[in-house]
Design a protein around this nucleic acid. Structure first.
Lengths: 247, 247
DNA sequence: CGACATTTTGAGAAGGGTCAACGAAAGTGG
DNA sequence: CCACTTTCGTTGACCCTTCTCAAAATGTCG
């Protein structure tokens, strides 16, 4: 009975932290039976956009997805990033102007929409786990709104780098034990700007400032290293020298 | 069997559009048995904040709730509004720095957390309906992020008024058949500013501009009327004269 | 009616946007 | 492997929207 899980999922790096990890043997076994791994090149649209692919769902095994809202007049805003172990897809509801795009090349653990939805009906536990994820995503989306609304450019860039470092650190090695090899930025400057509702020139300037002040180091275009985690976190959370506001 | 629904919920103005409306007789009946109506004065914190009340859930029957994120340094951002028929509460997950406050006095249809969660386990359909709501809320939260990130002050104020007019129109009369009595603003200028990530002076100026240009009319501090729905909608969606950007 | 919070209006400052030019990688084809 | 093209990133100068601070006006509620 557990053979499917053992053979196909035992090696999966995100098994324990993803949706599957919250399921009992039987349900996760059933899920593993309808799962198949796919690789997706960077830039590919996963869902949304013009094309109405047949609905399907997935879990990120490796790579980063950006969630972007596009309006008819062309304005875009990235309203979230998804990292390994995150659930991908919008179950139960129709299309919106949200789309998901591969920011990097991806490994996805995929489920056909039909099979997955059938499985949800059979296994309320799956739906339960999904509900929990969606509520967590909801919190994350609102934090993102806060970031867009109430922070300075400096804080925005610091926050984004902090989030990325934390997430990439999770999959590579522990951020606390300062990785000395640095992180690969999954986003271009332009994409960072679209995340933070800034212009890419502004992202550049803030990035440079963090570099000049010794908080981060950068090598090449898309690599950075966190020299002072605490300082980065501080800048992510409190604009300027607002330390006196704390109690 | 249906008596509980008939006696207690038949008169409920939001029955059909709320969570209950998505349930079958049996489940909605069971839900109605654990429901109780409460009135909440404006300003009351529904959940979150310092106090850790026992968890409970609810459905808004009348009134408006604001969802606000508060950071340790005192910065606040309203990240969503909830209107009649919306589900209130964060099932399954622990506390975050999100809190819900009554923007106006409320009528809530309340469920104790324990009873509601027990009911969810017994009736997967309830969990299913809730999942759908949460995914919709997730979309709404991301649209809110877009609003904060990619719009001008003018567009922000217009969007907020448009949303409010649509929602209040729903409960009063149809917005399409221009209400001539106007809408009651559930928010102060300050709260509008907190919604839109603007200063209240900026909200004022944009409000005045919409008034001067004949899009809306205002009488008293907290009443407004939509004179030109289409123009308001246009301003909510496209900043300045960006009409040529459309195709 | 009067005290008070809320709203409105004004003038000046500033953070980030805009435009433009330059530099540095990364891909491409010979 | 090198010249070429193209994309991406960096830097500078200037400008505009929105913020900030201040004061006056208007509703609102006891």
């Amino acid at each position: 009975m557990t053979s499917a899980v053992q053979t196909r999922c035992a090696l999966c790096p995100v098994q324990s932290t993803s949706l599957c990890g919250a399921l009992n043997e039987e349900t996760s076994c059933a899920l593993s039976r309808i799962a198949h791994r796919i690789r997706v090149p960077a830039g590919r649209v996963i869902y949304g956009g013009a094309v109405q692919q047949p609905r399907s769902f997935g879990i990120i095994v490796s790579g980063v997805i950006k969630l972007v809202i596009t309006k008819p007049d062309g304005r875009q805003q990235i309203v979230g990033l998804q990292f390994p172990s995150d659930f991908v897809g919008r179950p139960l509801v129709g299309n919106s102007n949200l789309s998901a795009e591969a920011a990097t090349k991806l490994d996805l653990c995929c489920f056909s929409g039909r099979a997955f939805e059938a499985l949800m009906r059979e296994h309320p536990q799956l739906e339960h786990a999904l509900l929990r994820r969606m509520v967590e995503d909801l919190d994350a989306a609102r934090e993102w709104a806060f970031l867009l609304g109430r922070t300075t450019a400096q804080e925005k860039v610091a926050s984004l780098l902090y989030v990325i470092a934390k997430q990439m650190g999770k999959t590579n090695r522990n951020l606390a034990t300062k990785s000395d090899q640095g992180f690969h930025l999954p986003l271009t400057r332009m994409e960072m700007a679209e995340c933070l509702s800034l212009r890419l020139e502004t992202v550049c300037r803030q990035f440079k400032q963090l570099k000049d002040q010794g908080v981060i180091a950068a090598s090449g275009r898309r690599n950075f290293d966190v020299l002072d985690v605490d300082e980065l976190k501080r800048r992510a959370e409190y604009p300027k020298g607002a330390s006196e506001c704390m109690q």
